[in-house]
C-alpha cells in the first residue's frame, strides 16, 4: 500500500510528514536506550528480511496481489519504537532507491506502515497478549490477530488520507481498501506468526515481547531453552 506521488494533497502530505518526522525522532531517541549487543544485528536482520519479504507479492482474489508489511514482526521482536525505525528505513530505501512509494507521500507511508502498522499495532498486540492466557499458543494467537489488524488499520489510515485529499470519498475508498486488505492481512498473519514461532523456538531471547518469563506462566516453558 505504498502511496505514490499524486494521490495526496499538500496539506495531508505535510501533516502526515510532520507527525512521521516527530515519531521517527522519538524512535531514534528511544533507540539509544534500547539498543544493546543483541539488538544491533537483530535490527539489521529485521530490515533485510522485511525488505526481501515485501518484494514477494502473492496473488489474492481478482487480479490483485498483496505483500508482507512486517510492522508487527519487527515490533514483536524489537519493541514498537525500534520496530518503527526498521519499517521507516525500509520505506526510505524503497522510495529513494526503487521508486516505490512517492517521496511526497513518504510521510504518509511512514505514518501508515511504521506508526499505525507498527507502533499502534504493537499496542493492539500487547492488549491481546494481556487478555489471553499466558502460554505459547496464546502468544502466537495474539501475534496473528495483531498482524491481520495491522494491515487493516494501515489500509484504513491510507483510505482516510485519500478521502481527506479529495482523491476518493471515504465511503468508496474505505470499504474497498479494507475489503482487499482483509485478504492480504491473512498472508501477513501467516508469515508473521510463522517467523515469530521459528525465532521463539531457536532463540526465544531475541523475541523482545516474550517478556513474561520472569513474572508468570511463560517461565516454565522458556527457561529450559535459553
Amino acid at each position: 500500500m505504498h502511496i505514490p506521488d499524486g494521490f495526496l494533497n499538500a496539506g495531508t502530505s505535510a501533516v502526515t510528514g510532520a507527525v512521521s518526522v516527530g515519531a521517527v525522532g522519538y524512535g531514534l531517541y528511544r533507540a539509544r536506550k534500547e539498543l544493546d549487543e543483541k539488538r544491533v544485528p537483530l535490527l539489521a536482520l529485521c530490515a533485510a528480511f522485511v525488505f526481501a519479504a515485501q518484494m514477494l507479492n502473492f496473488p489474492v482474489a481478482g487480479g490483485t496481489s498483496g505483500h508482507f508489511l512486517g510492522g508487527v514482526l519487527a515490533a514483536v521482536l524489537l519493541g514498537p519504537w525500534l520496530g518503527s525505525l526498521v519499517i521507516a528505513l525500509v520505506l526510505l530505501v524503497q522510495a529513494l532507491g526503487f521508486a516505490d512509494g512517492g517521496v511526497t507521500a513518504l510521510g504518509a507511508n511512514v505514518f501508515n506502515m511504521a506508526l499505525v502498522g507498527t507502533v499502534l499495532s504493537y499496542f493492539v498486540f500487547a492488549g491481546f497478549k494481556a487478555l489471553l492466557p499466558r502460554n505459547r499458543a496464546s502468544f502466537l494467537g495474539a501475534v496473528a490477530a495483531a498482524s491481520w489488524l495491522s494491515v487493516m488499520l494501515a489500509s484504513g489510515a491510507c483510505a482516510v488520507e485519500l478521502a481527506v485529499s479529495g482523491t476518493s470519498p471515504l465511503g468508496v475508498a474505505l470499504p474497498a481498501m479494507l475489503g482487499v486488505h482483509a485478504i492480504i492481512g491473512i498472508g501477513e498473519a501467516l508469515i508473521t506468526t510463522a517467523v515469530v514461532a521459528v525465532v521463539l523456538q531457536v532463540r526465544p531471547d531475541l523475541v523482545g515481547s516474550w517478556d513474561l518469563a520472569s513474572s508468570g506462566g511463560y517461565a516454565l516453558e522458556t527457561t529450559g531453552v535459553s
Partner: peptide
C-alpha cells in the same frame, strides 16, 4: 517469480478511477 498484479492500493485506484492521478503526476524524485 512474485506476482506482478497490482497491489491492494493500486487495484482500488484502478477500480475506483483515481489511478490517473498518480500516472499524470511527475514523480518528485
Amino acid at each position: 517469480f512474485a506476482s506482478s498484479s497490482p497491489d491492494g492500493l493500486e487495484k482500488v485506484a484502478e477500480d475506483k478511477g483515481f489511478i490517473e492521478k498518480a500516472e499524470e503526476t511527475e514523480p518528485a524524485w
